[in-house]
């Protein structure tokens, strides 16, 4: 059991990444424990998004982007030359800031979009997977009668849970969430936070958030990033969320979480 979990742990070693001549994050090292929720907090521009986008190598899809250092998923270096980012992204799913279902696909087609990639034809057992994924995303009851309407016709909160179901359908080991609730109302936000806690039983979750209350509510571990003198984001402190919020060891962390800046 312990070994199975370890395959979902992420070890970040001296990660430096940026665009062109701009460095977005510098020398970040931390270990994201498996089957836990790790929050990444920090002021705007501290490189939170760049950091998580390195974990599924989506960062490198942006023109002019570069990255150095090492990221290990279950002990394997994901920056190694023989690693196919396409295969990596099937193990490391992602949910974005703005809900982005595919508007030309139905709810059901959205869920299985990832399963129909890298292959010809229609794989077997899709219908079961649709229900299972929607149930895991706590969306099944609301959409079971409208599986064939456009994914874009759902409400904002439902769209975001549809995106979570779509990411879960591929059965990833890790789910990255880049400010998943910032476009949602408090009720929808609450539902997604509840969902995250359930999902963490099976997968590792990394959530970027602006909202410190959210980090305190849902996460087991918290990493605090801040930009240094040349605007490059650096890791200030990482530890169990309880300790970061009650007894931070760095003065800057304390200033940030007590609202003195940012």
């Amino acid at each position: 059991m312990r070994d199975a979990n370890e395959s979902r742990a992420i070890q970040i070693e001296e990660l430096t990444a940026g665009f062109g001549s701009f460095t977005a994050v510098r020398q970040v090292s931390l270990r994201i424990p498996p089957n836990k929720i790790t929050a990444i907090i920090g002021p705007s521009g501290s490189g939170k998004s760049t950091l998580v986008r390195c974990l599924n190598r989506l960062h490198e899809e942006v023109r002019g982007a570069w990255m150095q250092g090492r990221v290990r998923l279950g002990g394997h270096d994901i920056f190694a030359t023989d690693v196919d980012p396409v295969q990596l992204r099937r193990r490391v799913g992602m949910v974005f800031q703005r809900p982005n279902p595919f508007p030309t696909m139905s709810v059901a087609e959205n869920v299985v979009a990832g399963l129909r990639l890298n292959r010809w034809g229609r794989p077997a057992g899709l219908d079961d997977r649709i229900e299972e994924s929607l149930r895991r995303a706590a969306l099944w009851e609301q959409v079971k009668d409208k599986l064939h309407v456009s994914g874009a016709s759902l409400s904002g909160g439902q769209q975001q849970r549809l995106c979570i179901a779509r990411a879960l359908a591929v059965e990833p080991d890790v789910l990255l969430m880049d400010e998943p609730c910032s476009a949602l109302d408090p009720v929808a936000t609450f539902k997604i936070e509840e969902l995250m806690k359930e999902l963490a039983e099976d997968i590792t979750i990394v959530i970027v958030t602006h909202n410190m209350q959210q980090a305190a509510r849902v996460s087991d571990y918290t990493a605090f990033l801040m930009m240094g003198e040349d605007r490059a984001g650096e890791l200030v402190e990482f530890g169990p969320t309880d300790r970061i919020f009650t007894n931070p060891s760095d003065k800057r962390t304390e200033d940030y979480i007590t609202g003195r800046f940012g």
Partner: peptide, 8 residues
């Protein structure tokens, strides 16, 4: 990005 993140 949504499609790439699914492993496309």
């Amino acid at each position: 990005e949504a499609m790439l993140a699914l492993g496309a």
